[in-house]
Design a protein around this nucleic acid. Structure first.
Lengths: 205, 205
DNA sequence: GTAATGCTGTGATTTCTGTCACATTGTGAG
DNA sequence: CTCACAATGTGACAGAAATCACAGCATTAC
């Protein structure tokens, strides 16, 4: 896999260093990449697949923060790496996923030497911060029906597919709700002709 | 006001530059420092007073994100400044507030030249990110009674005073709830001997 | 003083959501 | 085909919180 095409903004010198120092690694769908309380030894750049960043509640519920796709990186791991602190969130491979692991020790050096890395890191901070803000907006100001619609749209946007292959239970977990509520709301959406429901699959119209 | 004592970690060279380039500015209690959609021309370091960072909903409700006190800086303004994007949040002086405004153009330069500035920025990102995470935790997983307790405790922590001089309405706004609900919950807390209620003032026990 | 206004307390009602219970349907293993 | 199981549909009920209505007090303006 030619990762340079996924990060075209990186300058030549930076690419060289990464080529020499970073480790490419594969995770299978379902693998936990980072867990709450764990120390971070490297930052992950996503090359392929999808990573789910979520917060676990006491009962094991997985409250979705956002997804990371190819060309993106985990802001939390960057911050934690630089400060060698533990993370407060969980990261899981949603699909089979290919990542580039950048060792912590390199971070400071890359920041100083390579403008394109610096820009990338800042850009990552900003977009994750914005994403968190929109999560807050949704749970603070919106009811479950609106949150569900937002969730479905976002899922379609991030995966690129127009159908959503999830059970109602999985969606309920992501939204910290219950299956019955999601089922009912989806039925209502179907009556409004917004979706078409199938087993393990939802079609957005 | 000698701001160097508030940022003792800054190195001499950095202090010199700030001394030459930054502008000290005063806001009165209630002044809006930054509003949604506004372009950011500088980053604010808080010297004295308190700034409330919040998100406004459609009806003008002010949902509290966090407070900034002396020695802290607004992560959002840093990110926005560097990328010259508009902000998604509001900032308001809660008390009379003294800030140091660092012009955007300096940011890149400071990041490259001064390790202590770089550390400060990273530290700021991390702590604001964490704070946002705990906001998400609260609204996603906790009921209003727990959120209220958390809110009161945090208020006492950040202000340093053991009494909270706010009306029930203001608290309700911060939590995106309604006055009646907050009044009732406070009454219950009083019955449990956790607080003592007065007009425009709540005493934490 | 009186009036006006703002803050707080409280009941009644409604809406949203979570929970329990159970029926139905689709799918895959044997 | 039949059984087992997972996914989905649905009614009944419970609890949290929002909303409405209004009363009692404290404070300020006059």
């Amino acid at each position: 896999m030619n990762w340079k095409e996924i990060f075209p903004q990186f300058e030549p010198g930076l690419i060289e260093v990464i080529e020499k120092e970073a480790v490419q690694r594969r995770f299978n769908a379902g693998d936990i990449i980072m867990r709450t309380g764990q120390y971070i030894k490297s930052t992950a750049l996503v090359l392929e697949g999808q990573i789910k960043i979520y917060r676990e509640n006491q009962d094991g519920g997985e409250f979705l923060m956002y997804y990371l796709g190819p060309g993106q990186a985990c802001a939390v791991s960057m911050i934690c790496a630089i400060q060698s602190k533990t993370s407060e969130i969980m990261a899981k491979a949603e699909e089979d996923t290919e990542v580039l692991m950048i060792p912590v020790q390199l971070m400071d050096d890359l920041m100083n030497k390579y403008k394109s890395w610096y820009q990338f890191v800042i850009q990552t901070y900003r977009s994750r911060f914005d994403e968190l803000l929109s999560v807050v907006d949704n749970i603070a100001f919106r009811n479950m029906d609106e949150r569900l619609e937002f969730y479905l749209k976002r899922h379609v946007d991030t995966t690129g597919k127009k159908s959503i292959e999830l059970s109602h239970q999985q969606i309920a977990d992501d939204l910290n709700s219950s299956r019955e509520v999601i089922s009912r709301l989806l039925k209502k959406m179907e009556q409004r002709n917004l979706v078409k429901l199938h087993r393990n699959m939802i079609e957005l119209i």
